[in-house]
């Protein structure tokens, strides 16, 4: 999921300076999981804004703000409130914020910082696991991402800086290649590490990306 974190309140208030009537939109998917933009956080934000004298006539959580068509429908339904607002504060990842900004002419402000895509290890602990490289090689690396877990994104094994399983750049960071080595060894698959991998095709990781996928497209492939 997309890991995000709430901005500091003074920064949010600064961005809303001069906006007296604010609509708040939260997100029911990743931002809820991150305790950054779910029901509870939206209610807290409403109280904070009211506490500094702003009016919040409408605050709600969409199932996933990044689903453009559904979000459009919801915004249309609630258009009377939105018309009245000076600003919309979106408590979702950057994708949700952009989706809303595209659908309304009102000023839209982000309440969260979008950090990375990763997993929820246990309550409050998130870990980045994929760098969105566009050509997944997890099958060779025992399911541990070399691009993301190695500080240099190396494809053919550890650099000389790997020390006792730690990365050369920060003592408390595990060396990604050490983790891969241990995993492959455990699973009897070290032969995968002996294979030489060619440099990545970075043309596949060009941004921004747009793709069209559907039954028709998949059949053609």
């Amino acid at each position: 999921m997309i890991i995000s974190q709430q901005k500091l309140l003074p920064d949010i208030l600064q961005s809303l300076d001069g906006s007296d009537v604010v609509v708040i939109i939260g997100c029911g998917t990743c931002a809820t999981q991150c305790h950054a933009g779910g029901e509870e956080e939206v209610q807290d934000m409403k109280r904070e804004l009211e506490g500094v004298g702003k009016a919040v006539p409408l605050s709600f959580v969409l199932e996933s703000v990044c689903t453009t068509q559904k979000t459009k429908k919801e915004l249309t339904k609630k258009s009377t409130f939105i018309e009245e607002a000076d600003a919309i504060l979106v408590m979702s990842c950057g994708v949700g914020v952009q989706t809303v900004a595209e659908l309304t002419e009102k000023p839209v402000f982000p309440a969260l910082d979008t950090l990375f895509i990763g997993s929820l290890r246990r309550v409050g602990h998130y870990e980045e696991l994929c760098a969105l490289c566009g050509q997944c090689i997890l099958e060779y690396t025992g399911g541990i991402c070399a691009i993301n877990q190695c500080s240099k994104g190396l494809l053919n094994g550890p650099c000389g800086g790997s020390k006792q399983g730690k990365c050369e750049i920060i003592d408390d960071r595990d060396c990604g290649w050490y983790l891969i080595y241990e995993r492959l060894k455990q699973r009897g698959k070290l032969y995968l590490m002996e294979m030489i991998h060619q440099p990545q095709d970075f043309s596949k990781g060009q941004h921004p990306q747009k793709i069209t996928l559907g039954r028709e497209m998949l059949k053609k492939k």
Partner: peptide, 12 residues
């Protein structure tokens, strides 16, 4: 330390 992952890289 450990040596084995470095040896794999050396062989490559």
């Amino acid at each position: 330390e450990p040596l084995e992952p470095q040896l794999i890289k050396l062989r490559k």
